[in-house]
C-alpha cells in the first residue's frame, strides 16, 4: 500500500515516479482570487461530480477538507509527497480526495481548481500516466474543463499551460554527487526542457543526495513525448549512477564499506540526529543496501525511515508515545533507532 511501502522497478536509484495534471473548471475564477464561499462550493461541485461518475474507483475515494486536519496531520501529507505545501498553507480554502492506496491524490483549490496526481514506487512513469489519464477522463464526465484550442488545458500559471502535466521522478544519486558529476548533469538537463529540485520541491536542498527531475515545458509536446523525454534522461542518469557506484566501490574497497557500516552504526545507536546528518547517513545506508553490501534491510524500509524521520511524522510519534521530549533531534534518533533494529 502506497509508494512508500510498495516495491517498484529500479528502486535502487529511482525512489518514486509521479505524474500531475493541472485542470480548471470553465467559467469559475481561479483559486488565487477566489473567496472562501466560492472555494467551498467549488470543492463540493468537484467532489459530487467525481462521486457520481460510473467508475469502480469512486468506492475507494475519500474527501478531506484541509481545515479538518490539524497542522501536524497536514504536514505529514506533505512529507509523504501526497500533497503540495501550497495546498496545506491555504487550508481554509483547499481539500483533498485520496484513494485507499494513497496512489491517487486529487488536490482541490491548490493553484488550480483540480490537481490530479498519481505517485508510484520506483520507476513507473508510464503506469502513473496511464492511471492518471483514466482518472482525468472520469473527472471530466461531470465537470467541464477550461480548454483552449491552441493553449490546451488552461491553468492559473502560464508555466503549466497545454498538457498541464508535470511528470517527475525522485532519484537517489550519491555516487554522482560524490564523484562531482552532478552539477554538469543538472546543467545539461536544463538545456533539454527538464528541471531538477531537492527532496521537497522548489528551492529545497538536495538533502540525502535526493533529486527530483521533471519536465519544465508543458505546452507543445504531447503527454507521451514529455514522458518519453524524461524516461530517456532518467535511464541514462540511472546507468551512470550505477557505473559510478561500482567504480567508487572498486577504487576504495574496504574504505567504502567501512563508511557505509559506520553510517548504519550511527543511525542505530545515536541519541541525537539532526535532519541534515540523518539524511546524509541514510543516503550512505541506502547506497549500501542497493549494492548488496548491507543485506538484512530492504530498500523500501529505508525510504519509509526517510519519511518517518521528517519533522511532522516525528511530532505525531511523540504525541502517540505521550513523550515530553521537545528536542526533535532526540526523537528522530529514537524513531530511527527503533525502525532499524526492526
Amino acid at each position: 500500500m502506497s509508494w512508500i511501502t510498495d516495491s517498484g522497478p529500479m528502486r535502487d536509484v529511482v525512489i518514486s515516479s509521479r505524474v500531475r495534471l493541472a485542470r480548471n473548471i470553465s467559467g469559475l475564477p481561479f483559486p488565487v482570487i477566489m473567496d472562501r464561499e466560492t472555494a467551498l462550493e467549488t470543492m463540493d461541485k468537484i467532489y459530487n461530480g467525481i462521486m457520481s461518475s460510473n467508475s469502480a474507483l469512486v468506492d475507494q475515494l475519500k474527501f478531506i477538507p484541509m481545515h479538518e486536519l490539524d497542522p501536524v496531520e497536514r504536514n505529514i501529507l506533505v512529507e509523504k509527497h501526497l500533497v503540495s505545501s501550497e495546498l496545506v498553507q491555504r487550508a481554509d480554502y483547499t481539500g483533498l480526495i485520496i484513494d485507499d492506496n494513497e496512489e491517487i491524490c486529487i488536490m482541490l483549490n491548490e493553484e488550480d481548481h483540480i490537481r490530479l496526481q498519481c505517485i508510484l514506487a520506483g520507476y513507473q512513469l508510464e503506469e502513473a500516466w496511464d492511471t492518471l489519464d483514466k482518472v482525468d477522463d472520469l473527472v471530466e464526465e461531470n465537470i467541464e474543463y477550461s480548454y483552449h484550442e491552441t493553449l490546451g488545458y488552461i491553468t492559473s500559471c502560464p508555466t503549466n499551460l497545454g498538457t498541464g502535466m508535470r511528470a517527475s521522478v525522485m532519484l537517489h544519486l550519491p555516487a554522482l554527487v560524490h564523484g562531482g558529476h552532478i552539477n554538469a548533469i543538472l546543467q545539461t538537463i536544463s538545456k533539454i526542457g527538464l528541471t531538477a529540485r531537492g527532496l521537497y520541491g522548489e528551492g529545497s536542498e538536495a538533502l540525502g543526495n535526493i533529486f527530483q527531475l521533471s519536465n519544465q515545458v508543458t505546452l507543445g509536446p504531447t503527454e507521451e513525448e514529455l514522458i518519453s523525454n524524461l524516461q530517456i534522461v532518467v535511464k541514462q542518469i540511472t546507468d551512470k549512477e550505477k557505473l559510478t557506484r561500482e567504480a567508487i566501490h572498486k577504487a576504495n574497497g574496504v574504505e567504502f564499506e567501512d563508511n557505509i557500516y559506520r553510517s548504519l552504526g550511527i543511525l542505530k545507536y545515536a541519541k541525537k540526529l539532526s535532519m541534515k546528518e540523518f539524511m546524509a547517513l541514510l543516503s550512505q545506508v541506502r547506497l549500501g543496501v542497493s549494492m548488496g553490501i548491507i543485506e538484512d534491510i530492504d530498500l523500501k524500509d529505508i525510504d519509509k525511515i526517510m519519511i518517518l524521520g521528517q519533522s511532522a511524522n516525528l511530532h505525531s510519534y511523540a504525541t502517540e508515545q505521550n513523550s515530553l521530549e521537545t528536542d526533535m533531534d532526540i526523537i528522530r534518533a529514537e524513531v530511527v533507532g527503533r525502525l532499524i533494529h526492526g
Partner: peptide, 8 residues
C-alpha cells in the same frame, strides 16, 4: 514554453 500550440 517549448511551443505555443498544444498537441496533447
Amino acid at each position: 514554453q517549448g511551443g505555443t500550440k498544444h498537441t496533447g
